[in-house]
Design a protein around this nucleic acid. Sequence first.
DNA 1: CTCTTATCTTGACAGTGTCAGGATATGGAT
DNA 2: ATCCATATCCTGACACTGTCAAGATAAGAG
Lengths: 214, 214
Amino acid sequence: MGWYLREMTQDMPHLRPKPKSAPDARPYHHGDLRAALLAAAEDELAERGMEGFSLRSVAKRAGVSHAAPAHHFGDAKGLLTALAAEGFRQFLAAQAAREAVAEPDPASQLVAAGLGYIDFALARPTLFRLLWQSERPDFSDPDLGQAARAAYTHLVDQVTGAGGRNTADEAAVWAIAHGLADLLAAGRMMSVGSLPAEARDAMLVTIIRRALPD
Amino acid sequence: MGWYLREMTQDMPHLRPKPKSAPDARPYHHGDLRAALLAAAEDELAERGMEGFSLRSVAKRAGVSHAAPAHHFGDAKGLLTALAAEGFRQFLAAQAAREAVAEPDPASQLVAAGLGYIDFALARPTLFRLLWQSERPDFSDPDLGQAARAAYTHLVDQVTGAGGRNTADEAAVWAIAHGLADLLAAGRMMSVGSLPAEARDAMLVTIIRRALPD
DNA sequence: CTCTTATCTTGACAGTGTCAGGATATGGAT
DNA sequence: ATCCATATCCTGACACTGTCAAGATAAGAG
């Protein structure tokens, strides 16, 4: 670490041209450190879990010093806040992916959204927990608030589109999708989680349909 | 801290009788440190949350040195494992409390268990997360495993008693109770969470009944 | 009364988040 | 083309954390 500093001080800079695109060159300015840190943080969460998350380890993973994240995110809470906002967008994208291949009728679309909800939790369990259970992100942050509100709005729209009329309709669909997602992501509901993908999806569809309005 | 040590070394022990039950006496041996640490850990979780939990702070809260917990629990994971086992027992007790005041028919008993499930999550949100989402307890621990299995068995018994016949019945009831509990405990489902207690319970009953078999 | 054992303390170590201050590169103004 | 304000990144330090090793103290058995 810090080899570039040695190189700068010990060598004579004017004797060699700047290796602008050398394969192993690490410039002082990263270029897009903010995005790299977010990606590294997501990897860190996936590998070491919510409790083992370390800001210094994220910085090392991105190949920068331990204090580099501060300038882009302030502190660890800031980094996790930005990651949560990005996570909510991926969360909505997972639902949209399921809706795109589902029947166009409102009930099928609502069930597809639920399957996407669960897909995301199974694919990124720790990120899912960051969105729904963690206290580390700053949920008063405007960007995160907007992303979270978009996810909630999408749910309400789907429920009302499928004939939902009151808060009980919304809450029932939301709770059953969220409960399945959380229990499956935590590996607690093995009676469903140990099924092969197709059988599991079929089982989830029948369960979700119970909570539908009508 | 450590005042008793100064007292022992600087004073002349034979000049004063041992203040065996002095009001501010802190004996070298705590007496029931294990239980005191568990209680302190629960307070610590409630006040500082899962992410702010600190073993040293728990020790300080119990009035003991920072390494004292090691002898009783090994490490932090051991303490949280024991706390989780105790938590699962309280979790079952919360369900039993609701069942005791509910109608005796199986469907009402099942709904009551769901309300107790949610009661516990609202009363001890961080402990609820320790049981269901945390990776810190050692879930291969025999005591914790038995306590967790007892909770699961109780759920299955309730569902089968109410007419449940397959895994879809179990999963639906479990998921809707768990989803409501988790979202309410995290303060995410404000459309239900902001209701006064009685109206909220009535709403929860109608929602849970949707997932019931038949 | 002595000795073994359980309990608790102190001190040290590496790792963590955060802050202050310094080094370096970038882009615009001159 | 040069200079400088700013953004970006680094080093070093601090308090705090979990864990380990070693010692001090109490309780109980013989």
